[in-house]
């Protein structure tokens, strides 16, 4: 946020990604103002994870560009924190909780230097923020799914980024973890950070987030929750594939699709 034109934390322009013949994202434009919590919603195969990966440069887009705080992503990697789906790694890997969280400091450490006391301190503080400090010396296979998710979150916190991208952090977690994640998200927002979250539970959208983006290969809608999270937009994003219809503007009910897991 030091940049003069940094009022937009993330600017995505004409982003198109294809796997083989099939486009996963088609000509997507998206603006995320700084200091907001934004949910990315959409049905299975809508390209939500692909959007994250394209922003992070993990998949190569056919077209489009991504600006983080007004500058190309490649120059801004260090201020972008990423929380991958926890199923993306091997939790039997021989490492401890504290060690995983310390990985969040690797980018600022630079080449050939090993983490020392300062990095361990930062990692311990981050673990404390997600309520996992007592687990620091545990092996990662001894964690529940929710605890794994909080460890990933702590690793991103240790990175001290200004824009966070989180892929399904609420997927299959317990109530304690969900509360812990929400607390961390709000804390990040109060410190002026921006968080973009791939989300599924339509019921909690109004409670947790300021803005939404509805996606189904193309961008269907985006904006403040009160404007963009409407029955019409949901219908357009989810198409005929859902029984979900928000009854009114203040308290949408959740249909089956909230429970359907998404993998791209």
């Amino acid at each position: 946020m030091k940049d003069a034109d940094g009022s937009l934390a993330l600017h995505v322009e004409d982003l198109t990604v294809a796997y083989g013949e099939r486009p996963a994202l088609w000509d997507v434009d998206l603006d995320v103002p700084a200091g907001v919590l934004m949910a990315v919603l959409g049905p299975n195969g809508a390209g939500k994870t692909t959007l994250m990966k394209a922003v992070l440069g993990l998949v190569r887009p056919v077209a489009g560009r991504v600006l983080v705080h007004g500058r190309p992503y490649a120059e801004q990697r260090r201020i972008v924190g990423y929380v991958p789906q926890r199923g993306s790694v091997d939790w039997d890997f021989p490492t401890t909780v504290l060690d995983v969280v310390t990985m969040g400091r690797y980018a600022s450490l630079g080449w050939f230097r090993s983490p020392g006391a300062a990095e361990r301190k930062a990692a311990t503080d981050a673990l404390d923020e997600v309520g996992m400090a007592p687990f620091a010396s545990r092996h990662i296979s001894q964690l529940s799914g929710g605890q794994q998710q909080r460890v990933f979150l702590a690793r991103a916190l240790a990175q001290d980024a200004s824009l966070y991208l989180m892929d399904e952090p609420f997927q299959g977690v317990d109530a304690t973890t969900e509360r812990a994640i929400v607390r961390v998200l709000r804390d990040l927002r109060s410190r002026g950070r921006t968080v973009v979250v791939v989300h599924h539970d339509l019921q909690t959208v109004r409670e947790y987030f300021d803005r939404v983006a509805l996606l189904n290969v193309r961008r269907v809608a985006d904006g403040p929750v009160s404007e963009a999270f409407t029955e019409e937009n949901l219908r357009a994003a989810y198409g005929g594939r859902t029984a979900f219809v928000p009854r009114d503007a203040t308290g949408p009910e959740t249909g089956d699709l909230a429970a359907s897991p998404v993998r791209e």
């Binding site: 990966k53 990985m103 080449w111």
Partner: peptide
């Protein structure tokens, strides 16, 4: 030994490693 932490991160979580610019 020199690339220890990089090799560790790439082996454990290549997605995150790429995310932080490795």
């Amino acid at each position: 030994l020199l690339l220890w932490k990089e090799f560790k991160l790439v082996s454990f979580d290549p997605g995150f490693a790429a995310g932080i610019g490795l």
